[in-house]
Design a protein around this nucleic acid. Sequence first.
RNA 1: GUGCCUAUGGUGUAAUGGUUAACACUGGAGUUUGUGGCACUCCCGAUACGGGUUCGAUUCCCGUUAGGCACC
Length: 377
Amino acid sequence: MEFKILKKSKKSRARLGILKTSHGIIETPSFVPVATQATIKTLTSEETKEVKSQILICNTFHLHLKPGEKIIKSNGGLHKFMNWGNSLMTDSGGFQVFSLGFGRDFGVGKILKEKINDIVEKHHQPKSIRIGERGVWFKSPIDGKELFLGPKESIKIQEALGADIIFAFDECPPPNADYGYNKEAMRRTHNWAKICLKEKKGNQALFGIIQGGKFKYLRIESAKFISGLPFDGFGIGGEFGDDKKKMVKMVDLVNQQLPENKPRHLLGIGYVEDILPIIKAGVDLFDCIVPTHYARRGFAFISNGKLDLNKSLFLKDKNPLDKKCDCSVCQNYTRSYISHLIRAKEITALKLLTFHNLYFFNGYVEKIREGIKNGKI
RNA sequence: GUGCCUAUGGUGUAAUGGUUAACACUGGAGUUUGUGGCACUCCCGAUACGGGUUCGAUUCCCGUUAGGCACC
């Protein structure tokens, strides 16, 4: 992997760059669609390419459970397996430590919406998984079998999967974790980062992950520690506090600690309104389930907001999803038709919305790249 | 025409002689950030009509109307 910065903004920390892998180039800043199970749900790989995606992120944990990395390796690796000729990343499975653990215990995502009275403190353990020094014991959501995943295991699996960019195994603490817990999780994540580097044998690019939660000094400490190790790039994980301004400030602060010549990936963020601020804070790559997940709930993202195609008023609306959009869905289908398909629970609706939403996100980031190029951002 | 049966939100069903008549779908409003596609939360909305019995009727009785079934 090779990363070249073409232009640095004078107005913000934004950068325009090119990331090269053996499977092609990624123009940065870039949105990374989420292909957890080695597919963008509802789309073929050809369609995923049509919406101008240059890189996808698949998930180590999910693909380890099914079909297993052996099957994928025997198919010639992830690229061949899913017929995707462009670049790929795999997430390490670290996030599942959270989502199957404390995330499930408290019924929360990584960003806190409501206050939770229970605080996760140092040495607390989630109910259904066990986090130790060498890694995490899970119960398989498929058959309940005891599984162990740690930094060594994650790297081995990711090497078998064969993505261009892989991530270090980390722990993502829940949003209701206190300082003590975050410090502990960060220390584990740092140890695991060193183990990941030592374990890696091939020439895949490896990104280290910065944690520290909403605690400024932990974030700085984590950024300094991780960037002191010979990673090819960096992931910024975890949560940043309850309000968005704080998130952007924290990301900005983290990026100030990182070397400029390596790419930075913000993990699991972006609503549309988050995208410009995080790019201005110096983020080169970011993945998010929002365009694909919302598509399957009947929402379309458009130039001036989002549409809920579940609403019956769209049955009478013969406009395209977005008049300003030149994607093939907007050229050929009406809101009325898509709304009908959603309400009839037809799977084609999910495909049309997924296609449009990804085209919209990729197009939106493309415009931001233009803006950086023209000196407007 | 005669006999029998039925009548509860927009739809399909519950329940009860005694506080705010339950549930599902529909309709309306929300939620979803390193993904659980068809999820979750909240809201609107009904005892066909008219009498009677009773302290109290959606429930019991009579009539009207509507629908179903059988017979002539």
